[in-house]
Simulated scan of single mutants.
Amino acid sequence: MTRSVLVTGGNRGIGLAIARKFAAQGDRVAVAHRSGDGPDGLLSLSCDVTDSDSVTAAFARAAEAHGPLDVLVANAGTSEDGLLIGMKDASFQRVLDTNLTGAFRAARQAALGMTRRRQGRLVFISSVAAHRGYPGQANYAASKAGLVGMARALARELAPFGITANVVAPGLVDAGLTESLTPQQRRRITQDVPLGRLASADDVAAAVLWLSSPEAAYVTGVTVAVDGGLGIGH
């Protein structure tokens, strides 16, 4: 069955890998992004998840092109690391507004059609930082932990409509935001990973596809860690 899929932050890194995997299995895929170029072969939508009107417009364009939305992957994210005592209010708020409130805006828009059709899948991309926490990432960790709580609430709220809400929490992935890490940081974190390597974007995409598949129809409100064991015990 071909489905309509929208991936926020889907023009690079993890988001692009997710979008391409859905497209490879025949789904109609739209990628929403605030900056950068759209990927070839996928419907590209300009969308700022910090702006409700922009989200509404992007979803409308996706529905016009691909039909009612079946799967939302809320992946758009940013980071502005800094130690607590020096972190400005604006830096904290910007990260939450993109990573957490942006996902809320996208989920709210997706749910409008999903509840009417009484079916749908919501998948939120969190992070191992939500469970472990890292120095200098109070804003990022808070935003990613918030996705877990929000997904659990939505899982209960939307279950009567046949909609599932789940989270994928990657560890250190060799793509996207981790490109800013120094070689020393990469080595230190990799040493802590029981499987001894970084994740690939495709590792994360595989978990998203499973949560969106018929085989996961009875799975909701869970967090799937794709972190090589980095978050064991959290």
Rank of each mutant, 00 (worst) to 15 (best):
K21I: 00
L154D: 08
F22S: 02
H234R: 13
R187A: 15
I14F: 07
T223G: 04
A199P: 11
T78H: 08
A217T: 04
A58E: 00
I18E: 09
R152F: 00
V73A: 03
D227R: 01
S46N: 12
D70C: 01
Q25E: 14
Q25A: 11
A155D: 01
G9P: 01
V95A: 00
G120W: 07
A153V: 08
R118G: 10
A153F: 00
Y218A: 14
E157K: 05
V226P: 09
V49F: 04
S213A: 04
S35H: 11
Q137H: 07
K88Y: 05
T8P: 10
R197D: 11
A141G: 03
R132A: 13
V193D: 06
F59C: 03
T56Q: 13
V208P: 00
A17D: 06
D70I: 05
T178H: 14
D27C: 00
H33G: 07
F161N: 03
I163C: 01
D89T: 08
L122V: 09
L96D: 00
G102F: 03
D37W: 01
V29G: 10
G10C: 06
A142M: 00
R117G: 03
G86R: 15
T220D: 09
R156S: 12
A205H: 09
L45G: 10
D70R: 07
A63H: 11
A169I: 10
A76V: 12
A23L: 07
T190D: 13
R28H: 07
A201I: 05
F124R: 08
F22P: 02
G36V: 06
N75L: 07
L45E: 04
H33Q: 03
D27N: 00
A23W: 04
